Computed example of a mutant assay.
Amino acid sequence: MESAIPSHLQTARSRHRRVPDDYTPPYPSFVARHKPAVKSVTMAYFGAQYRGEPTAAATKALAGIATRFAGENGPTHWDRAQYVDQAGFTNVVSVAYWDDAARFDAFLPKARDAWTGSEPGAGVGRFIEVLRPRVERYETLFSSLGRPEGVAVLADGMSGEVQEHAYWGGMRDRIPLSQTDAMTPGGEPRVVRDGARIRVVAHDNLCLIRSGQDWSDTEASERKMYLDDVEPVLREGMDFLRDEGAPIGCYANRYMRVLDAGGAPTEKSYGQSWWKSLAALERWAESHPTHVRIFGAAMKYLSTLGPNAKLRLYHEVTVAAADEQFFEYLDCHERTGMLGAVSPWVAAELGSTGEAGRLAP
């Protein structure tokens, strides 16, 4: 049994784990292992937003960012997913990952100018949301080996079975910084306008989770059980966070379907949400009725199928320092991503009546 925290990041604890040293988890899980030379990673979300069917402008923009990803200093890995948000806009989000800070620094200026630097037009909003955490500030977890997702694709490999999982508080205990730091949020989000572009400056210890499901390997009875009994409960919880998450500390939530290279939906999905703090995410996970139902449905599913379950689950959780974040929006509606964290400013700027509208320059 390994620790989820790699040996080169282990240090004397001033904050204790939630379980004793002899704890044995009830089922196996694994984490991604980077080479010790990797000091930080970059997670960059490039989003396009439009109503209805894809327009020529949207298609061109999405093709353009894919071309840039394939070019000089592009990411080591990227994937694309889609969802319809609470305001009825389709959002197509291309998520790119780097483990070389210099390559990302060389990539971003031209990509940013092309993505959010032009004037709004043709009904397509665009946004860039970036975290650049040091490796001490994030963790991963996988239910099985053999198919890394997200930031784990950058890793050197996967661990053996790890100890810190299958209990409340496990995700905190897997983050190396938690050994010595409570990772408490500091400051309040604010807005910086740059012509038509709107930047949100968040706060210290902002939390991001990407939590995924892959049912592509399931067969008839298991697939039916997942799609009929588990996925609707998961969707209900994701919709709650999207529509009503702000009072409990969730700035924004996207429940997205992963797309293949041709733009068709795959049998993979993930929830991606921005939180005021890791503690707020933990409270929802441990005690809110929507997550209690998700957890109950998942446990019934897994206990019924046992080791024969072919559903693959994973997540990545990051708690980012203030200087590891970048959020920029162009011609997006006022509840897009981290714009939801500055809603009083949005209301004043738009004279908002509660209906979603575009942010004009």
Rank of each mutant, 00 (worst) to 15 (best):
N91V: 12
A297K: 03
E231P: 14
I248G: 03
H315M: 12
E349S: 08
T90Y: 01
R257M: 12
D173C: 15
G263Q: 07
E222K: 11
A56N: 13
P185L: 02
K60P: 03
W215N: 02
E2F: 06
D217Q: 13
G157T: 10
E149L: 14
L177C: 07
A285T: 10
T67S: 15
P28Y: 02
V130A: 08
P133S: 04
L9D: 01
G150N: 00
A102Y: 04
S221K: 15
R210G: 13
P185M: 03
D217H: 11
R210E: 12
T55K: 04
V192I: 12
V135R: 01
A4S: 11
Q163K: 15
T266H: 04
G212F: 06
V317Y: 03
F127A: 09
G340I: 03
A114K: 03
Q10C: 04
I5F: 03
M338C: 06
Y226S: 01
L259Y: 03
F46P: 00
A106Y: 05
V31M: 02
A106R: 13
E161I: 05
H333L: 08
S343Y: 11
L302R: 14
G340L: 06
S178L: 11
F240A: 05
R257E: 14
L131C: 05
W98G: 02
G195P: 00
E164M: 14
A298W: 05
I175S: 01
P20H: 01
Y138D: 02
W78V: 15
R68Y: 04
A196L: 05
R51P: 05
A70Q: 15
L281I: 05
P361V: 13
A220Y: 09
A348E: 14
D105H: 12
